[in-house]
Design a protein around this nucleic acid. Structure first.
Lengths: 238, 238, 238, 238
DNA sequence: CATGAATGAGAATTCATTCAT
DNA sequence: AATGAATGAATTCTCATTCAT
């Protein structure tokens, strides 16, 4: 999930929707086809295949060298198509990235619905653990793009905004899942507090996953345990 | 503190020193004056002043536009010195950044020594809270550079490494401070576990501070409370 | 009518046919259907319709954006036919333009025959006025192409030459019509003089019409009166 | 003087200031230094020399090939300076052109003040003839740029506007000079009429000069005579 | 010390045109 | 007859860095 936005951000955002502010919901672009240029043409089999080649090549390149270092030329060379063809389907490198990203974001957003109601017992903790694990899986599956997304300076305002969206959604889901049982049981749950807690914990999960996909090798299994324990404790013993 | 390193890192690092692996200790260059080119010359009043102008201008530019977007030309124009003069003191943009960064890292590293022994009581939590607050202050004071540092793809390998160093040191300090009391009291503390927990929590603190300095406006006071509570709970109730 | 040929012209022309030199007469290609590629094929209904769509689209585009700015792609998109099809009927943008232009030139050339014998009286002036008006009508009807034609640098040598042809023809017609009556009456008419005068006046008419079709809004009715008066005076009182 | 503006003009202008509308007077940029980029730097001897080399090279190239065909690369090669240096002084080809143009426009505008009061006699006609001749000289001196200017489609809106300015000024000067004597003598001079007449005649002069500088070789001396006679007749016998 | 000048290797993008289906 | 796909040469512009004064 995206964070970071180095360089003073042009348009400051504020607030905490449902205190943490979830911006206006954007249309969930379904990542299929290509970017802008390709949107208004009908793609035939061959065309679709070329787009795919570009997406694949792009993903590979981004994964290997990051966003900045990749030149359109690299992607094109890897995909073995001509320079001009690239611009037939994507208006530029960022456009290609966006296409790649939207897949990732869709999957990440899907985690929202999967967040369980976490009860104050072993079963709850087990369910939570499963979710954390799922998060790690999803993150890993899209690591290269999410990694780039989290370097806000690199991607444009708009893309970064898409990421924030998902972040807030997840944050809300966590809040819900972690407090639902308590609420039912009549426990008091300081409203805003829970949401801030959820946000903090989400950031933790994300960054740890970040580290998991880059150089620092951490024992993933244990890490998941730790994360689960921390989340559990944070909501139930503070 | 740095995280992120988008684009598969050239030379993967692994391991966890004292499980978390703190890399080989690098020479702690003492942030004074300029970078490489300036190192072997003695600076007179005028020279020092020029360097200062460049550092100021650089900081301002980095703050406003991030690392990438800043061109040597921007810095030079803002500092009102000539293009050629820049290279008299710094070998390039990254060099300037490094000079700026080292100050920040020194201050961040200093937090290490300030981490208190956190006892399982109100007093402990209060002490912890004070430290978290200090962390936020320090982070805020160097926000622009740290923000950039945390976008690994942007800065070079070397710089990023400096950041990792500090991260591991802090992580260890937290582990110590949070488990010292318990250890003394004879509590069992699963070795590696505590360190992973500390790392996770550190990541959380960092990212939240990140968010605090960028567009998303969060209530800092409450956030500090939440962070404190989470850390406390994580170590004492899990 | 074309003038202008910015950029020193490759092959300089000189002389004044019958003092004003009318170049070698070019084959008067009869503006029908398409350009080069289409010339050797018989077009069926569908084909003719496609050509027409292209001509229409081309005219509209040229009118809106001039020659340069129009890309084959624009025409093709407007005509809602495919890129490849364009080259089935025209060899390139200039070819399309030529097809469009020849219609215009035919009409302009037709003005030649309509130029009246202008007598030194009210009737003569009225007849002249009518012709000037007709010129304006014809010009307006083909404004977009003629406007382009008059920017020699833009169109190729060949096209521009076609325009010069018509210019010289018109110039001669004016000379004839304006001096016929005088000659008959035994007035002396300095040979070359009249032709140069006619050319100058033609240029005047053309440029004013140019202005009439572009941004500068002039009162056409009065303008026609002025032009008529100037021509009349030029031939009869100088 | 500029005419033409093929391709529907973005922002239609209308009206006839003092009926012919002379737009807001623009600041008379004194053509010295370079274009935009050079404006905010102090140029030393070497710099000024380089700018001059670029201006010379640009003029020569424009003259030989027109505006469109010239690539920045051509200019740079001719001036024997590096590609990057060009952009140190001009932001692009058009910028270079503008620098070149302003000289021309200043000179053309100067003709305004030189237009004599043309009396209805030999002396008046002689004075007029001298002015027409001066016009031709000035035009010839700047032929290459003016030629380009008159192809509105090529140059930007702004540049073209500068040309219109001068056109209107000249038009007014002619009106003044041609009607001053008559007015003094108590002759009636239909207000608007005179201005339209002047505009028409100006267009004539310009286009003929255009032809004089391009391929069609006309006898300049005689042409000047004809133009003078026409103008004289137009104002005095119509 | 400091400066203005010059450099030139890139990188992005466009668009006319050809081709296979 | 028509189409979508692919091409790649051409051109513009940027910017880090070096140099002579």
């Amino acid at each position: 999930m995206p964070e970071g936005n180095a360089g003073k951000p042009p348009n400051p955002r504020s607030g905490v929707p449902s205190s943490l502010r979830a911006d206006a919901a954007r249309s969930g672009r379904p990542s299929l086809g290509g970017g802008a240029p390709a949107q208004d043409r009908e793609l035939r089999a061959q065309g679709r295949q070329t787009v795919q080649k570009l997406l694949d090549a792009g993903l590979a390149e981004f994964d290997e060298r990051g966003f900045q270092a990749v030149r359109v030329d690299d992607v094109v060379r890897r995909a073995k198509i001509s320079h001009g063809t690239f611009y037939l389907y994507f208006s530029n490198k960022e456009d290609l990235f966006k296409a790649l990203l939207s897949d990732a974001l869709v999957d990440m957003a899907a985690l929202t619905d999967e967040f369980p109601v976490v009860t104050r017992n072993e079963a709850g903790q087990a369910a939570l653990r499963r979710w954390v694990n799922a998060f790690c899986d999803t993150y890993a599956a899209h690591a290269s793009v999410i990694r780039i997304l989290s370097q806000a300076e690199i991607v444009g305002e708009e893309v970064w905004g898409d990421g924030l969206q998902v972040m807030f959604k997840l944050s809300e889901a966590i809040t819900q899942g972690m407090t639902a049982a308590a609420d039912a049981a009549g426990h008091e749950t300081p409203a805003g507090h829970a949401e801030l807690t959820a946000l903090a914990l989400l950031m933790m999960i994300e960054r740890i996953n970040y580290l998991l996909t880059v150089e620092v090798r951490l024992p993933r299994g244990e890490m998941v345990d730790r994360l689960t324990a921390i989340i559990f404790a944070a909501f139930h013993y503070s």
